[in-house]
Design a protein around this nucleic acid. Sequence first.
DNA 1: ATGGTAGACCTTCTA
Length: 259
Amino acid sequence: MRIATWNVNSINARLDNVLAWVGAELPDVVGFQELKCMDEKFPAEAFERLGYNVAVHGQKTYNGVALLSKTPMEDIRRGLPGSDVDDHARYIEAVISGPTPVRVGCIYLPNGNPIGTEKFEYKLDWFARLRKHAGELLALEERLILMGDYNVIPEPEDADKPETWVNDALFQPESRAAWRALKNLGLADAYMQADGAPGGYTFWDYQAGAWQRNHGIRIDHGLLSPQAADRLKSVVIHRDVRDTEKPSDHVPVVFELDL
DNA sequence: ATGGTAGACCTTCTA
């Protein structure tokens, strides 16, 4: 089973580009982040024509997440639990049905910039809520993947120029500690388990020729429960997608599980 | 130290 995550930076502005990749790869499951549209503006029919079931959690202008699955999705959850006031559409979860079901959480973690503001506090609070929810999911002892744009550079090796990120929310000690605390519940960083090679970047800024200079960072991750980690075959970062026409600033990451 | 780009959209915010 191949499960993909991709921050598309507007699903409608990106539709041709996204359909080309999804249509060519046809992963069993796809999680999108940064739809930048409400549910009714999500181009569901285009993906249904490719054979997918669609679950969307959108909002106007910002954020928005969605899941595609070839098999029906069950137990769909929209929104991260643990807050009465958070109205950002940053989390959607579903159980992918089949002979060996897998629960997939699709995450668009807050960016948190600039540091020292309420935005950074919101990031850390969201991280704490995610940790609490992940703990509850781990207790189910299921095959589980929590994947998406975590907006965290875990280690200096995950940036081409780590020194340029020291004042950025993505590389703050608090952000990295929150990432470690999440992993320390008993989740495996799929990329590190399957590959671990430095330079596996998933994002290159549009500005200042970051792609041409390979000034990338690894911020799109998949965390696996033990039941899923035992079945991980490979992680492939589709970096060539960054060189296509009208690309997202993130590229797809595909997790292959032996299910 | 600054600026550089992209997307949504009311002109600035987010990334």
